[in-house]
């Protein structure tokens, strides 16, 4: 327990999870201990070589299926000051429920979102492969996938190629590729329903699972409206997309974003007005999936309705929804692109 560092969190956190339960019972005694001891222990950003050796030995004896070891966050977020944070889980930059605390009482530095630009997706499934490769996702389950969506149907046409007993038809369908991923909702029902607080929402918006705590009841898998969660058949716990948190915390983009050949997946910080996602969200109409459920998804789709999009002619542009376009917010970002429906002068 004296080892302090980024990597050791797994064993310690599962142990401390039990300890936290006891702490709840003991109450003030433990928090008193935590607050006095916190002054003595300095935050350690990196494990020493000896600690790293012990860490690797630990993982060699207890191999994990998932490639990422621990949810690592910036030292500024308080993860490494474990006497203050983990013993007193109220200080952790995560939320198990009551998500409106994020950004208010829980300090939010970043707000990671993804924008799926369906004007650009060609359905090559490179992101799916990259995700499987990066996260060691077992055969048969997927953290991200690209659906082929077909809309429309058969219309009667005397010259059509499809001849049946009841008439001649031609197909009037539209096909599009639809990248799907965990929506990292701002109000995720999957996190609320977990009976043992094994899944949580990080302050930067990422919904994650602690595989050492998951009891595998399946409640979160059922509660996700987007079927983004699944049972990992190897580690026998619930599993899901993490936005490649292990890469993010080292300053890299998620694997699916890196691998996308057409830049259809755009990832970034919604809190940063200069980021590409902020620009996209401010300038283009976006939709989210199953908006009526009120989960507030943080994966946005551009051109979900697959209307023909021509940048030079706004006349052909159809904006299926404009509810997500906040012109005030856009103005605070001092954008100067023409807004949809903006006929000039009036805003």
């Amino acid at each position: 327990m004296s080892v302090a560092g980024i990597g050791v969190g797994v064993s310690r956190r599962s142990f401390l999870g039990v300890l936290a339960g006891v702490a709840a019972a003991v109450g003030t005694a433990v928090s008193f201990l935590g607050s006095t001891a916190a002054a003595a222990i300095k935050p350690v950003a990196r494990p020493s070589a000896a600690q790293m050796k012990r860490l690797l030995a630990y993982y060699r004896t207890k191999p994990r299926w998932a490639s990422w070891l621990v949810p690592e966050l910036n030292a500024d977020d308080g993860w490494q000051r474990w006497m203050r944070t983990i013993l007193n889980s109220k200080n952790l930059p995560i939320a198990h429920d009551n998500f409106s605390r994020i950004g208010t009482t829980i300090k939010q530095t970043h707000h990671w979102v993804m924008v799926m630009d369906e004007r650009r997706c060609i359905g090559c499934q490179a992101c799916v492969v990259a995700c499987k490769d990066e996260n060691n996702v077992p055969v048969g389950v997927y953290r991200t996938w690209v659906d082929v969506v077909e809309t429309g149907g058969m219309v009667p046409d005397p010259a059509g190629p499809i001849v049946t007993d009841v008439g001649t038809y031609r197909s009037e369908v539209k096909r599009s590729s639809m990248p799907l991923i965990c929506n990292h909702c701002d109000h995720p029902p999957c996190v609320d329903v977990c009976p043992v607080k094994a899944t949580f929402k990080r302050a930067d918006g990422i919904v994650m699972i602690d595989y050492d705590l998951c009891i595998g009841c399946g409640y979160c898998v059922e509660a996700c409206p987007y079927n983004a969660r699944f049972f990992n058949p190897v580690q026998q716990t619930a599993d899901k997309c993490t936005f490649c948190a292990h890469r993010l915390d080292r300053g890299l983009l998620p694997a699916c974003v890196t691998s996308c050949p057409t830049h259809a997946r755009v990832f970034g910080d919604k809190n940063d007005p200069t980021s590409e996602v902020s620009t996209l969200l401010a300038t283009l109409p976006t939709t989210v999936l199953k908006e009526d459920l009120g989960t507030d998804p943080q994966v946005f789709y551009i051109n979900r309705e697959q209307e023909v999009y021509d940048e030079n002619s706004t006349g052909n542009t159809v904006y299926p929804y404009t509810a997500n376009l906040n012109s005030n917010e856009y103005a605070t970002l001092s954008g100067n692109a023409p807004l949809p429906g903006d006929t000039g002068g009036q805003r």
């Binding site: 039990v18 198990h96 429920d97 009976p195 595998g216 009841c217 409640y219």
Partner: peptide
């Protein structure tokens, strides 16, 4: 349950009142 050995967490990490389970 896929992880029946962790059943004790229902006591130690009880997520009430948010999770009916």
């Amino acid at each position: 349950s896929r992880q029946p050995s962790r059943v004790y967490e229902l006591i130690t990490r009880m997520h009430v009142p948010y999770s009916p389970m």
